[in-house]
Design a binder for these strands. Structure first.
Lengths: 243, 243
DNA sequence: CTTGCGATGTTGTAGGATGACCGTATGATC
DNA sequence: GATCATACGGTCATCCTACAACATCGCAAG
């Protein structure tokens, strides 16, 4: 079959490209909430793809609650508040300010996570956290393994809160940050900073093991601040949070 | 065209039903991460739908990072940690314990949101918050309008933090809770409780207007606790959070 | 004026055809 | 016998056409 003339040449799949394009148009305000999208056929012509591809793209956006399609009428843009999913634009994180804000959110979640975990964690929770910590301090300080153990550590704490939503949200935010960092600079030895990083984790673990919520929370907050500065993000806007 | 024999009779669209079914199978552990899904044709036969429908369902799951399709090989289940989107199962919120956990997460986010907002909010931010408050206390205390103004109030505070991610996360969590409540019990007069609710909001606003972070945070925490108990959810596991 | 019905447009679903890509088996070459 | 090129079947990616389900509008009959 002859190849249609595509909009852009890329490795990404067509539905994803169409979805991204529509998503940006909606996010950017080109199409206001409540407005109707062009028909599937029109979109197919516009992007130079088949109607089938357009439908798959719309299926993705519809799953997020970004648009709503009604049979016989058309597809409509929905208000951004009633999304059924949270999605973070990886591109936006290249902006230092956005990364800073995401770190601030992470700080909030993780600080409280550590606080709750200190009060609730059982012995097996502590074992899991300790295991992750050992992996970090162990021989596999090389790039990937270390980062993986780092995430494992934080997830283990989140799990120790006993709150599945906290676990989900923290996992998500951390993963977004990790991938964004990993993408920005692939090589990151800096062994002296690794030592600092491990030391911060040890302090968190000690507070958790002592079941001291306040100490755990503060250790975690300092750690996130440190982690942020280590990747070049300064949480300048530090407020005198209720401490 | 003759109607195929569908799995279940429902008003939901076919792709969504297939996606939900697959999602539950993955979430439930029936298909472990890394495993390969049946081919599109097999799934089409299994669900009694066309391959087109299966592809739309997979498109949704793929957008969430739940599965990954590789041309020429098949579709594979991915680890739950590397999802690219957060989605909350509305069904699961019917379980009191899950609702309780979601409220706890909301408490964390909103408390810190109020704290930050108190330190950062500008006069126009306060105006927006005040406007929402007036709408709540105003004449439209009837069901929907009141709840809408309530959400508007909380969103205005989140916006005043200047952190877009905090706004997104809080909007999302609040919306999930609202829809779940709205679904559970459609009628909710209880006018005396409405007065209490408004009073709590006033206290939050006063703290924000006074730019008192600690007072704002505590007022918000008390409000969320109160809101939870008003819908029958007790945040029993209250910890001595770093006060 | 109201009501019913057809025309038209839109999304939803079915089904088949072809291209692109992957893994493996087969067979030729050294 | 070992190695490498090629053929083949399986699978996803995309395209196309056709029809069903639903909504809206206009027009004609009552």
């Amino acid at each position: 079959m002859k190849q249609r003339s595509s909009i852009i040449g890329s490795v990404e799949a067509l539905p994803h490209r169409v979805a991204s394009h529509l998503s940006r148009e909606i996010e950017g305000g080109d199409i206001i909430p409540g407005a109707r999208l062009p028909t599937e056929s029109q979109l197919a012509d516009k992007f130079g793809v088949s109607r089938n591809v357009v439908r798959e793209a719309i299926a993705q956006l519809r799953a997020d609650g970004m648009i709503e399609a009604r049979q016989g009428i058309g597809a409509f843009v929905m208000a951004p508040e009633q999304r059924t999913a949270i999605r973070i634009d990886r591109e936006a994180l290249k902006d230092q300010r956005n990364m800073e804000q995401l770190f601030e959110l992470r700080s909030i979640l993780e600080t409280e996570s550590a606080t709750l975990a200190a009060a609730r964690c059982a012995s097996d929770d502590l074992d899991a956290i300790k295991a992750a910590l050992d992996r970090m301090g162990g021989e596999e300080r090389w790039e990937d393994g270390s980062i993986e153990a780092d995430l494992l550590f934080h997830r283990a704490i989140a799990r120790a809160t006993g709150n599945g939503y906290i676990y989900t949200f923290i996992s998500f935010v951390c993963e977004q940050i990790r991938q964004s960092i990993h993408y920005a600079r692939l090589t990151n030895p800096l062994h002296d900073l690794v030592e600092v990083n491990v030391a911060e984790h040890v302090r968190i673990y000690d507070a958790l093991a002592a079941h001291d919520p306040q100490a755990a929370g503060e250790a975690m907050r300092r750690h996130i601040d440190g982690a942020a500065s280590r990747v070049g993000v300064e949480l300048t806007a530090k407020i005198n949070r209720g401490k």
